[in-house]
Amino acid sequence: MGRYIARRLLIAIPTLVGASILIFAMVYALPGDPIRALAGDRPISPAVVQVLTDRFHLDDPLFVQYWEYLKGLLSGDLGTDFRGRPVLDTIERTLPVTIRLTIVAVIFEAVIGLIAGVLAGIRRNGYFDNLVLVSTTVIVSIPILVLAFLAQLLFGLKLGWFPIAGTRDGWYSYVLPGLVLASGSLAYVARLTRTSIAENMRADYVRTAKAKGLPPSRVILRHTLRNSLIPVVTFIGADIGALLGGAIVTETVFNLPGIGRELFDSIKAQEGAVVVGIVTLMVFFFIFFNLIVDVLYAVLDPRIRYD
């Protein structure tokens, strides 16, 4: 087990470095003048340009720039944006919003997805099963962008149940964006649970449990559900990593000041250091949660051994 984790970590590091080089190269190596963009239409003195160019190593070759960046990264310094604010401060300011959004989304995903999946799975081809199949197809097909506007129109403007922008109402303002962000994964969890339950309902140990005369609720909750949960739990775990990096659209439409919207604003303003910092963090989350899930798999399913 320990050796497996060590090997996975060794594979994860080059992936992380590779992804950050990729994004770094796109942001920095391609021509374009961030200093000019910063100045906008106003004139800017050559001395200022020179100082900024030196400070951000803009004249050095790409790998020198990346090496400088990596040195800073290892000592906990993510650099500063062109206005002199540390990138780390920006992340500390925006990350809590994204974390709250992700928590709300995961709760929706787990609760609604699981319930729908279980109800569909125990009576395969029944009325509820078909309802779940059709509605998940529809939900998966609605782009997040469209879903966000539909939710705003229906629950925000028509019914007035939820705020449609900002974070003024505390956790309550995360409900609508959280539901929108969760929708795709929610449908997937429902289908995964359905398939998993339906397969296990035919398993020998479930037939045994029924033959022993256990009440149906106990057969489903204690015997079927427990074993069916393994793929679902691992999917939700991996999805946390993806949700933390997938909120650009949701945060932009609902005007939530999280890392997704910060990243989008920084891409527009060509704030290279912020873009690279946030994307590296997102990739780190993605890899980290995938690693956790792989380990979790072994803990939950004793048939899997990694040595």
Partner: peptide, 15 residues
Amino acid sequence: DVFYALPLILGALVL
């Protein structure tokens, strides 16, 4: 793996 770790929208957005 490197490309997979970058979300589709994000990579295309920057490029």
